[in-house]
Computed example of a mutant assay.
Amino acid sequence: MSDPGSTGLCAGRVVAVTGAGRGLGRAHALAFAAEGARVVVNDLGVGLDGTPAADGPARRVADEIRAAGGEAVAHGGDVATPDGAASLVTTALDAFGRLDTLVNNAGFLRDRMLVNLGEDDWDAVVRVHLKGHFLPLRHAAAHWRAETRAGRRPDARIVNTSSGAGLLGSVGQGNYAAAKAGVLALTLVAAAELGRYGVQVNALAPAARTRMTERTFAAAMAAPRDGGFDAMAPENVSPLVVWLGSGAPSAGVTGRVFEAEAGRITVMDGWRPGPTADKAARWTPAEAGAAARELLAASVPPLPVYGTAAE
């Protein structure tokens, strides 16, 4: 795929991107192709709430990559099912003979305040975001483990998609926030377990204009942009994803969480021990409460949850 700014960072690599029919996933697929990767473009083609849609966005993106001189195939399977996730890996192997990078990005929203959040909406969002990360990861990891055991140790990468909602919480998005927080924990475990098979695993919390965020970023979308820079364009996030999904350039980076928005990249520190009190004996409830108050006074206050008045 011809791109005057390309450095061939991912030349020879095969990359599968889930939820790549629109928004961030589409931007990632195009960016990988521009850097020389062959791309499996996955998208189930559903609406914003996960209901079936009539169009086939994965095929359109694959056609777009091929029209620009790149190599791509479309995959329309549901990656939150075992068969769909397995066929994603099989599609890469059948089309290109290998799989080097998996970008888990598929998702949708069903926002409700907790007291109005039905079990079906909880299950649906957790399924696509959390199970839809786990199953492709599991099937790709099984392939890479088999390659390692056959003496062909891969130089593989997984990039998972979390959210600021998973880092801080978000009012009206208890299901989404819980799933995205789960993606972070899954990333840490996968990085620890899969390193022996040549797999690096990282997570990204992006902020960009997509179907899922158009209401959130309505003001930013309408604001003036210096020098024509579209701060909320999903393409701003993709360079970091491409680098994390590359081979040698990203060597040694695993088990980390990044935020990416506009021209800003942040490494997140995650949970770390703060102030501690140790009595070396059992506390009474009153003593434990008094100690907790002292520790809280000495600690850094948490950042506000998205959507709260304190934001």
Rank of each mutant, 00 (worst) to 15 (best):
D3R: 12
P4E: 09
S6W: 07
T7Q: 14
T7Y: 11
G8Q: 11
G8F: 09
G12E: 10
A16G: 06
A16K: 00
R22Y: 10
G23D: 06
L24P: 05
G25W: 04
R26I: 05
H28A: 13
L30V: 11
F32N: 03
E35K: 03
G36V: 09
G36Y: 11
A37V: 10
V39R: 02
V40F: 02
G47P: 02
L48C: 01
G50A: 11
P52C: 12
D55Y: 06
A62Q: 04
D63S: 04
E64M: 05
I65W: 02
G77Y: 00
D78M: 02
D78G: 04
V79G: 02
V79D: 01
A80D: 06
P82N: 11
A86K: 09
A86V: 03
S87H: 03
L93D: 07
D94Y: 01
A95L: 05
G97D: 07
R98N: 12
D100R: 05
T101G: 02
L102H: 03
N105W: 05
G107H: 04
L109Q: 10
R110C: 02
D111C: 05
R112L: 04
V115I: 13
N116E: 13
G118M: 03
E119K: 08
D120C: 01
A124P: 05
V126M: 13
V128P: 01
V128T: 15
L130M: 06
L135D: 01
L137N: 05
W144K: 04
A146F: 02
A146N: 08
A146R: 14
P154S: 10
D155C: 10
D155V: 10
I158K: 00
I158Q: 03
Y176E: 03
A177I: 08
A177Y: 05
A178Q: 07
A181T: 09
A185M: 09
A185S: 14
A192H: 07
E193T: 07
E193Q: 13
G195N: 07
R196A: 15
G198M: 11
A203I: 01
M212F: 07
E214Y: 10
R215H: 13
M221K: 14
A222K: 14
A223T: 12
R225H: 15
R225I: 00
G227A: 11
D230S: 06
D230L: 11
A233D: 15
N236A: 04
S238N: 08
V241K: 02
V241P: 01
V242D: 01
L244G: 01
G245T: 10
G247I: 07
S250R: 00
A251S: 15
V253Y: 06
R256V: 12
E261C: 12
E261H: 13
A262Y: 00
T266C: 06
W271T: 14
R272C: 06
T276R: 13
A281C: 04
R282T: 12
T284A: 06
P285C: 12
A286E: 15
A292H: 11
E294H: 09
E294I: 04
L295R: 09
L296P: 00
L296M: 14
A297E: 15
S299Q: 12
V300W: 06
P301I: 04
P304L: 05
V305A: 10
Y306E: 11
G307L: 03
A309E: 15
